[in-house]
Design a protein around this nucleic acid. Structure first.
Lengths: 191, 191
DNA sequence: AGCATGTGAGACGAAATTGTCTCAAACAAT
DNA sequence: ATTGTTTGAGACAATTTCGTCTCACATGCT
């Protein structure tokens, strides 16, 4: 069974999303290669996880640019910020869904190198949210870091919803955006 | 070092919140007892985790009653539902904070017996949210299960915020309630 | 003092996982 | 066809964790 490094990583991610604690042997089987071959591509389990996390972080970083988040933060333009916010959240859903296991894996979250990178990326988003607050796009009475953590939490909610089959995949983006921006109370309500 | 079963569990929970993958040896050390004694109280690691989860579920279930959630669901009374919603969310913060590691521990989430109990408790909340929707307290255009998952996600956000020190403990309840009900957009805004 | 109970330290084997290695078979390229 | 590369199967030692067990010691009670 031949497999490129890329195919291995994709299959590994897919399996880790179902069994976050899978062993190297289980991952090799899921990929369809032998344990020896898996070790030829990734010298250790840490190596593999590092590579997967690095890939996820790359996609995340690319999204921050492609969504216009970076540019909008710099421009402080309200319309640009609004477009970027929507694109960012929609993109985050995809990344978070693909690398879902990473959302709640403690070993990844506490890995020094990975934590540094994640903190750095998250910090950019905090700055972006702060800019959105100044533009009147997001409430100014909420800490920007809380907003950032809220988005993270809602991504976890999306993952849960999809895993349980509670909502259809095509609906999650709308639900996330809507809930994040307007909350769960009716518009006229003041609770 | 003498310790009651209760003290052991409390100390174990505390340590697991910092090191979710802690071994029995590490837990024993954190509790301040020997590994042998820990095994005298809990025959296996599974046994300990089961006991901890059971305790968490009990508190959760108690909260569903003490918050008035159960009664309000049955009564369909709008004011009662509103009071219950507030009390439930505030109580969930405490439970989720105390047993934070359980929010994202895959081994607990997939344990058949625990999953059954958690699903059962969550189902009650879904019914409650549905009642709140009928009473006009929550938006009717959101799936009740999505609302339930949203609350779960926001609890994860709370845990993250407290771990990182992003927000003060006394503020989290207000932030959670406020964000959950009204979202992150300014009231006049329509994004 | 004498006795019973609980505890800590540590040894022990069992099991799982990891990373390395060897060797034979399959494969690709020339 | 031959050569060089890659792969799979499996053996291997090292490590970790777990659950059990023994034994000495302390603590409390009568």
């Amino acid at each position: 069974m031949a497999a490129t490094r890329d195919q291995i990583m994709k299959a590994a991610i897919q399996h880790l999303n179902e069994s976050p604690a899978a062993s190297m042997a289980q991952l090799a089987e899921a990929v369809g290669i032998s344990r020896a071959t898996l070790h030829r591509h990734f010298s250790s389990r840490d190596d593999l996880m590092l590579a997967l996390a690095h890939r996820a972080h790359d996609q995340w970083e690319d999204l921050q640019t492609s969504s216009g988040m970076v540019a909008a933060t710099a421009s402080q333009d309200r319309a640009a910020l609004e477009r970027a916010l929507k694109a960012l959240l929609e993109g985050l859903i995809e990344v978070a869904d693909e690398y879902g296991f990473g959302l709640t894996d403690d070993r990844l979250a506490t890995h020094p190198e990975l934590k540094r990178r994640a903190d750095e990326l998250e910090e950019r988003e905090v700055v972006f949210y702060a800019a959105a607050q100044r533009a009147g796009l997001l409430r100014a009475d909420l800490p920007a870091r809380w907003i950032s953590n809220t988005v993270f939490g809602l991504l976890v909610a999306v993952r849960e919803s999809l895993r349980n089959g509670d909502v259809a995949r095509r609906d999650v983006a709308r639900l996330l955006l809507d809930t994040f921006l307007h909350g769960a109370a009716p518009e006229k309500e003041r609770a």
